[in-house]
């Protein structure tokens, strides 16, 4: 029971990082300034690296090897939240998603540093040191674009439209109680409270207002229910790998 709950936690975290890392990498060549192509690539590399580590832990727990897990599953087997699946859109959409998601990441790693599963605690400690830079980046841009007349309206719209998806990050997993009882992870509710406090604090330094957090979250991702965007992303990701999954590439 405990192992199954841990696997469920690892799958959702790994799938989140893989899919969002993939999306972030799509900014290559398209950023509003060169420095943002580079920044989104750095964050993408961190996220893909983090997903690899989580899949490796799963592999140690008896699951298939990371390449097979990542490159051969169908969308309904993925446990990522729906927010990460959405196409990159315009820069404002990607930036707001990065702001919302990476604060959740940062606090998730903070909580997991105390996990009784040592392997996860060690990974969380390392990943939080990476995530620290992601939130610094998000802060800098939210403050810049949240205080400039040219961009306030665009940013506010993205906050308002993104909040339901962002709340879906915290969709409780079916076996979450086991994780809490066993001291593996303190749970999505506690995570979302910490997240909310950080989001409010940053937005208060801008001319943006807090979006309506009583909005109903867009859930489903943690149970394998996804938007139509995920399967095409996975098809693209596995296009070469699936030519011969047994081959060395």
């Amino acid at each position: 029971m405990k192992n199954e709950a841990i696997k469920e936690l690892l799958y959702k975290m790994a799938d989140d990082q893989l899919v969002l890392g993939h999306r972030n990498s799509e900014w290559n060549g398209l950023g509003p300034i060169l420095e943002e192509d580079i920044a989104f690539s750095s964050m993408a590399q961190d996220k893909i690296g983090q997903s690899l580590e989580f899949y490796s832990i799963l592999n140690e727990m008896g699951e298939k090897d990371p390449d097979t897990i990542a490159f051969t599953r169908k969308a309904d087997k993925f446990k990522c939240c729906q927010y990460v699946e959405h196409p990159i859109g315009e820069y404002d959409f990607s930036l707001v998603r990065h702001f919302f998601f990476d604060y959740a990441d940062y606090h998730r790693f903070e909580l997991l540093k105390n996990s009784k599963v040592e392997r996860i605690a060690m990974a969380a400690k390392k990943f939080q040191s990476e995530s620290k830079y992601h939130i610094m980046h998000a802060n800098a841009w939210m403050k810049q674009l949240g205080n400039s007349d040219v961009s306030i309206e665009r940013m506010q719209n993205c906050l308002n439209e993104g909040i339901a998806l962002a709340l879906g990050i915290f969709e409780p997993s079916p076996m979450e109680n086991v994780l809490i009882e066993e001291g593996v992870f303190e749970g999505e509710k506690k995570l979302s409270e910490r997240w909310l406090s950080s989001i409010q604090s940053i937005l208060s330094k801008t001319e943006l207002s807090m979006p309506d957090i009583s909005t109903a979250p867009i859930n489903g991702g943690r149970q394998g229910k996804h938007t139509p965007h995920l399967q095409p992303l996975l098809d693209e990701m596995s296009e070469v790998f699936s030519i011969d999954p047994e081959a060395e590439w």
């Binding site: 993939h22 990498s25 060169l34 580079i38 690539s41 893909i48 690899l52 990371p66 790998f241 590439w249």
Partner: peptide
């Protein structure tokens, strides 16, 4: 080809390489 690179090793390396080029 970043989004289509076969496997983690190639995906991570190609992302870093292309990032270097933009740098």
């Amino acid at each position: 080809w970043i989004t289509r690179a076969p496997g983690f090793k190639r995906k991570l390396a190609l992302m870093a390489k292309v990032q270097d080029e933009v740098g």
